[in-house]
Design a protein around this nucleic acid. Sequence first.
DNA 1: GACCAGGCACATC
DNA 2: GATGTGCATGGT
Length: 215
Amino acid sequence: MKDKLLLIYKILLSEFGKQYWWPGETRFEVCIGAILTQNTNWQNVEKAINNLKRKNLLSPYTLEKIDLKKLAAFIKPSGYFNQKSKKIKEFLKWFKKYNYNFEEVMKRDTFELRKELLNIWGIGEETADSILLYALDKPIFVVDAYTKRLFVRHNFIKEKDAKYKNIQSIFMNNLPLDKNLFNEYHALIVKLGKIYCKKQPLCNKCVLNKRELFL
DNA sequence: GACCAGGCACATC
DNA sequence: GATGTGCATGGT
């Protein structure tokens, strides 16, 4: 499995190049983006984030003060805006315990932080891990719908076993715990997924199928 | 118009 | 623990 994972990474990197993730300018923007992108197209998230930026609202201090209804209106393009506005407020409540200071947050142990994030209403495993990896520079592997599809379709795992924790373990038990590697790898899987790994499969055209390992 | 997108909480069995 | 449902916009 180790060799397979490294080969896939090599293929994806040579095919697509570095992705320079996450698409966000600050740690805080990454956190908000991670919440807004839940089950949503990234283009819609960008619209929502731009609405916040345009109004100079993209900081914990301003978002803390804004009315829930107004926040929902600004993030409308990202969908599920009533839920997501509440999720942002819940995230802020947690972040405030650290005085909105990422340096303080990042001092803490990765898995303690993960537990705290999972305790926030609206933050599940993928969102928590996205925040840990892309906002807090912690070496943890992010699993998403594309990753699951990739693993199931290439028979690396049975459909019934394709749980978040199982897939994450495969990566983290077989690869060095390197945040730069995990960062690029997940981004490349999303890049691959957007092109070839749709719900309606285009698997026969997938770049991975062209290579010897998958023939 | 139908289907999909970088999930999650909650109810029910 | 597994399965089903509501949440909602914008692109194809």
